[in-house]
Write a protein that binds this DNA or RNA. Structure first.
Length: 504
RNA sequence: GCCCCUGUCGUCUAGCCCGGCCUAGGACAUCGCCCUUUCAAGGCGGCAACACGGGUUCGAAUCCCGUCGGGGGCGCCA
């Protein structure tokens, strides 16, 4: 389909995070949308690291970033780790480029040196704010001849570089998600493109990078819309074509403020640790501002690639709903094979000290069944160890409230007592035995249904709720024959412990 | 304060561009029922929204204006 000729028009998008910590789900969504757009259009997805803020960037953060993105299943065609035709892909390694183009702008008279001190600018800004105006740079240094400016600089006077912006007119652009957007130049002022410490300012570096990397579509957060006119002005100053913009709405917390730690987990890494599947997270993230045409809900990455449509992205902010994420996660967990479930579950069980590190094959066979059964209704893998307590914890002295209520009745006690008498001399127990005995009890006492099974559940689990007993008993009996760091107590022993505790 | 964006069930959203098919659809959550050896899962059903006010029109969730609410931006941060 794609011949040589169309190669030139190939769609190129980028995800350009600054490595300042773990990746936030809001940024992950931006990455995802970029990736989906690239993949469905057979385009190129580039990863670029914006590390020009020396104070905040750290090398290890870049590794985290890459790890998180990989985990999510988003791969890139060009990036700091794999290189590419338009590298380097780390802004800190592109400094010469920024200087070169700034110099060009200076020579052409499209930019100028600004000697204003930060204190001075701060004062002006505050004054403007106080008067209810947009703080716009006064243009004080605008007309200093380049020669004079260079002289001052060579004497050691620090200077930033500003872009000369026309004083009148409007900058407009068509945003793929928001439509026509325009800004009045009066409120823009001459933006700094190179700081006095020589580092490029964000609005300048992005333009250089996006242009040089031939980015065709800039898909990013809504917090960048007001930067867009400044960037467009830069493209115009260079005579470069502007990319197409698409600004995604913000991701909010329940109280309608930007999603933050206060609201719960916010980093991709955190969700991974909790045992949210990458595919479920992507699935959920894709629904933040987008919906498939036919209302499908549970989707794989591949399906998302097919269905995703930038034109269907909504413009209003979305609130992050943990409940729905969890529901989607459950749906994705269901689709996993028993082996996959076990492998995902193992680390959590090991960490909880339930399983010793390399589990034996025998243990694994059993664990696979246990995980399969206990995973039902679990939101995320981190909840699994607690579910396993049903098997590993048995303490008659520590009955929950529900259990206490169940065994309080005389009929419950009768059931328990009868049950105990019938198993007292058994050396083996299995579900068939259980079924036979409960049948007998039913016949002898007339007790049936909940009144019959509930008390027995309490006897066997010390809990008022748990698994269906036909699943529980075989699982427990089999597990009790295996060696685990914490021993699993079998049914017969449990009954004896409970009866002696209850003094029946 | 100024600039930009935005406003459909509690939440994510469909519908809006190309007015009537909308007594506004779906999903999560919630409630109820069924199933069942509790819970869960599953099945079925219920509650629940066009922010407000003006226009335009035979007719508006859909078009226009205003109000109000929410968000973002206003850096030598990214």
């Amino acid at each position: 389909m794609n011949n040589q000729a169309s190669e030139k028009e190939k769609i190129r998008v980028r995800f350009a995070p600054s490595p300042t910590g773990y990746i936030h789900v809001g940024n992950a969504r931006t990455a995802l949308f970029n990736w989906l757009f690239a993949r469905q259009n057979n385009g190129i997805f580039v990863l670029r690291v914006e590390d020009t803020d020396l104070e905040r960037s750290r090398e290890e953060y870049e590794r985290n970033l890459i790890q998180d993105l990989r985990w999510l299943g988003l791969d890139w065609d060009e990036g700091p780790d794999i290189g590419g035709p338009y590298g380097p892909y780390r802004q800190s390694e592109r400094l010469e480029l920024y200087h070169k183009y700034a110099h060009q702008l200076l020579q052409e008279g499209k930019a100028y040196y600004c000697f204003c001190s930060q204190e001075e600018l701060e004062r002006e800004r505050e004054a403007a704010l106080a008067e209810g105006r947009m703080p716009v740079y006064s243009g004080k240094c605008r007309n200093i001849p380049l020669k004079d400016a260079e002289k001052r600089r060579s004497c050691g006077e620090p200077a930033a570089i500003r872009l000369k912006v026309p004083e009148e007119g409007i900058v407009a652009f068509y945003d793929l998600v928001r439509g026509h957007v325009e800004f009045d130049l009066k409120i823009i002022g001459d933006p700094i493109i190179v700081r006095s410490n020589g580092m490029p300012a964000y609005n300048y570096a992005v333009v250089i990078d996006d242009a040089l990397m031939h980015i065709t579509h800039v898909i990013r957060g809504e917090d960048h819309v007001s930067n867009t006119p400044r960037q467009i002005l830069l493209y115009q100053a260079f005579g470069w074509p502007t990319p197409i913009f698409a600004h995604l709405s913000m991701v909010m917390g329940k109280d309608n403020t930007r999603l933050s730690k206060r609201h719960g987990a916010t980093s991709v890494d955190q969700f991974r640790r909790e045992g949210i599947l990458a595919e479920a997270l992507c699935n959920y993230l894709s629904f933040l501002g987008w919906s498939p045409p036919e209302g499908q809900e549970v989707l794989t990455l591949q399906q998302l690639v097919k269905l995703f449509d930038l034109n269907r992205v909504s413009r209003s902010a979305a609130i992050f709903d943990y409940e729905k994420l969890h529901w989607l996660n459950r749906q994705h967990i269901k689709k996993l094979s028993p082996e996959e479930k076990l492998n995902l579950a193992l680390p959590y069980l090991e960490e909880a000290g339930l399983v010793s590190s390399p589990a034996t094959e025998e243990q694994k066979t059993w664990l696979k069944k246990a995980v399969e059964i206990l995973l039902e209704g679990v939101d995320k893998f981190s909840e699994l160890p607690k579910k396993f307590e049903l098997l590993f914890d048995f303490n008659p002295e520590n009955l929950d409230q529900e259990a206490k209520e169940i065994i309080a009745s005389s009929s419950a006690r009768l059931v328990i007592k009868t049950f105990y008498q019938k198993i007292a001399n058994l050396s083996e127990f299995n579900y068939e035995t259980f079924a036979r005995i409960t049948g007998e009890i039913k016949k002898e006492t007339g007790i049936k249904g909940r009144d019959l099974y509930h008390p027995l559940r309490v006897v066997l689990t010390a809990r008022g709720s748990g698994l269906e007993l036909d699943k529980f008993i075989p699982l427990l009996e089999e597990g009790a024959r295996l060696q685990f760091p914490r021993r699993i107590i079998g049914c017969l022993e449990r009954v004896k412990m409970m009866v002696s505790f209850l003094n029946l």
